[in-house]
Write a protein that binds this DNA or RNA. Structure first.
Ligand code: NAD
Ligand code: NAD
Lengths: 232, 232
DNA sequence: ATTATATCGTTATAAAAATAACGATACAAA
DNA sequence: TTTGTATCGTTATTTTTATAACGATATAAT
């Protein structure tokens, strides 16, 4: 069932093969954090086991989806009982690489950047924002949520010296590309992009665009639909 | 002018409208805002036309995907030329219901809530956050990004009086459900949920969960994979 | 006028994801 | 012991989404 790729279609592009070779569907990976969040609560409540059925019902999913999702982490459950909560948390964290803290820098200490710097939840996702950079001289030097805002000129040196692999991008959209270029020069491997700008980066750099408008579009469309069909 | 395909066309448009109000592909709806963002830039630069091919190349998509996505908005392009930028913007906005500004309230004026209140981009998405509510007495009464923070007790009255249909939820996860209940009592129709808590709401309320961890999981997984296969 | 070509819109096919189906297993109760 | 059942993990099947294929059309070039 798994097997090697038949090299039938060479057009199929490297990206797909990469994702397939790990056998992790994108939608599956996206659901894992939600399970993790719930598992942490169950753990705190002292539960030793949890069934896929319970995880499914909370998130309004079919149990079989949950079981399949969890399967890619390598976890094995016991029939009639479920999964060990501790083991499951460890398996998901390990699969996502969240068992080891990754150091990140943030570029653009504005509204959103400040909020992200102040978010305590990232440590649960293996993320540690260790420094913030900004171009605005009025912000440089100030302390923000426990980090001192540094000038852009320091970025490359800092990132290289501290072996930073991940960058969080929260600058205005029209300067996003140049900030990304700077990150690339600094040896950053992954960019978490909160700007509405699609970035152009070397092939060995991974970008993830976080677009709030996507979710709002879905919400708006659903509401719009409801109001048209139910006449509300 | 188009007499020869008239009968076929009318039949098709009926089908399309049904499908439009019924279920537009989720992935399609999610891509529309990205097109819109680029279109606004093109419009500001004075471009009159844009081809699906151009939109596709910027976002690293296949042209046919773009054309199909745009088709659900009802827009019609001209071969060899493309689409009128103005018309396309209007069509997407109309499809998403973003041509009319929707009034929203925000509950939880903390780190993230403040950032969202300060975001000027929402007016491009037909969203207008007109009020903020918080439980913390130290925050109530203060001005935040041009809005006065109001106590929770005012929420129901305010929302009903101002016919608010949309709520933005940025409270801590463990009180998210009760805040959502309050919104439901206030007649809110849609909840944009930024907490990691899966909400339980009446069937006639639409919720959209915005989970940053999803995107981070994808990014982490890609990086993790890269580091294991390319040994970097 | 003819040809070339970039693009459109639709239809056909392939790939991914969700859902259904089903046998296997661990424990509880009769 | 036997039966009942909630769950697991795997293997179909269906649905959704992405990609490929193709004829049609508007404009520019020959
Ligand atoms: N605030 C939100 O809620 C929100 C929501 C969705 C998307 N976004 C996006 O996030 C980004 C930031 O939004 P914001 O509201 O925080 O904007 P902001 O203006 O508050 O912050 C931007 C910060 O980037 C700094 N900056 C500007 N140019 C820079 C450069 N070249 N290098 C480094 N820093 C630079 C500015 O000094 C400022 O501090 C924008 O692209 C925006 O579209 C924000
Ligand atoms: N800050 C981020 O970058 C970030 C990122 C991802 C997710 N989130 C999520 O967003 C939510 C808010 O995060 P935050 O960092 O802004 O937290 P925060 O603590 O800074 O803000 C929470 C605010 O909600 C208020 N509040 C508490 N209980 C309330 C209630 N019952 N009704 C109304 N208001 C109430 C608090 O007084 C506070 O002002 C959390 O659920 C968090 O997990 C935040």
């Amino acid at each position: 069932m798994k097997g090697k790729i038949d090299s039938k279609n060479s057009k199929k592009s490297v990206t797909l093969e990469i994702e397939q070779s790990r056998r992790a569907g994108l939608s599956c990976v996206k659901r894992l954090p939600a399970y993790l969040q719930l598992l942490r609560i169950l753990q705190a409540e002292g539960n030793e086991y949890v069934s896929g059925t319970v995880l499914a019902s909370v998130h309004h999913l079919e149990p079989v989806i949950v079981r399949k999702d969890l399967a890619i982490t390598g976890i094995i459950g016991t029939p009639r009982i479920g999964f060990r909560v501790n083991e499951l948390i460890a398996a998901i964290e390990r699969f996502l690489g969240w068992d080891i803290q990754t150091k990140a820098i943030l570029v653009g200490a504005g509204n959103l950047g400040t909020a992200l710097l102040g978010y305590r939840g990232f440590e649960n996702f293996g993320l540690q924002i260790v420094a913030a950079f900004d171009r605005d001289p009025r912000k440089v030097g100030r302390w923000l949520k426990g980090r001192r805002v540094q000038p852009l000129e320091q970025l490359v040196k800092f990132a290289r010296r501290n072996r930073i692999t991940l960058g969080v991008l929260t600058v205005p959209g029209d300067v996003a590309q140049e900030a990304a270029n700077l990150m690339a020069r600094a040896g950053i491997r992954g960019i978490w992009n909160f700007t509405p700008t699609k970035l152009d980066v070397p092939a060995d750099i991974v970008t993830q665009k976080e677009d709030l408008a996507e979710g709002l579009a879905v919400l708006s469309h659903r509401l719009h639909y409801l109001s048209r069909t139910k006449g509300l």
